[in-house]
Simulated scan of single mutants.
Amino acid sequence: MGTPSDFEFLVRGDEIVIRHQGRTATVLRGARAAEFLAQAEQGDPQQLMARVTGNYRRGNERVARQHPRNAR
């Protein structure tokens, strides 16, 4: 699986805007925004933003659905 990319975040006052490929994916406010900033400083911000936005499951879902183990 590849690493996530094309994410960026902007701090606007007390909120954090997370964008993916130039489009707003989500906005974090309050405690969730503070937690995001703390985690972004410690780890990989691209991976974190993919997790927060729910945009980390891309690529192999269609192929996995066709696998004999998953066929019903």
Rank of each mutant, 00 (worst) to 15 (best):
A38N: 11
Q46A: 08
A71F: 05
T24M: 05
R69E: 15
L28T: 07
E61M: 06
E35S: 13
V63P: 00
D44F: 00
G59H: 03
E35T: 09
Q42S: 11
N55H: 05
E8S: 10
G43Q: 14
Q47W: 12
G43I: 02
R69A: 12
D14W: 08
N60C: 08
A40D: 06
T26Q: 14
R65K: 12
H20P: 01
A34P: 02
A31R: 10
A64K: 15
A31F: 13
I16W: 01
M49I: 03
E8F: 09
F36Y: 07
R57M: 05
E61H: 06
L37N: 04
V52T: 10
L28F: 14
Q66D: 13
E41V: 15
Q39Y: 00
L48E: 03
P68R: 10
A25S: 07
Q39M: 11
Y56R: 15
N60A: 11
V17I: 13
R51G: 15
H20V: 00
V17Q: 10
R51Q: 13
Q66V: 00
V63G: 03
Q47C: 06
R69M: 12
P45H: 15
R23P: 01
I16D: 00
T24Q: 14
L48W: 04
Q21R: 15
R29Q: 14
D14L: 12
G30Q: 04
Y56L: 10
A34V: 09
Q21S: 12
R19P: 01
G59E: 04
R62V: 06
V52D: 05
G22V: 12
L10G: 04
L37E: 09
V52I: 14
T26W: 03
I16N: 01
R12I: 13
F36A: 03
R12G: 03
A71I: 10
E8Q: 12
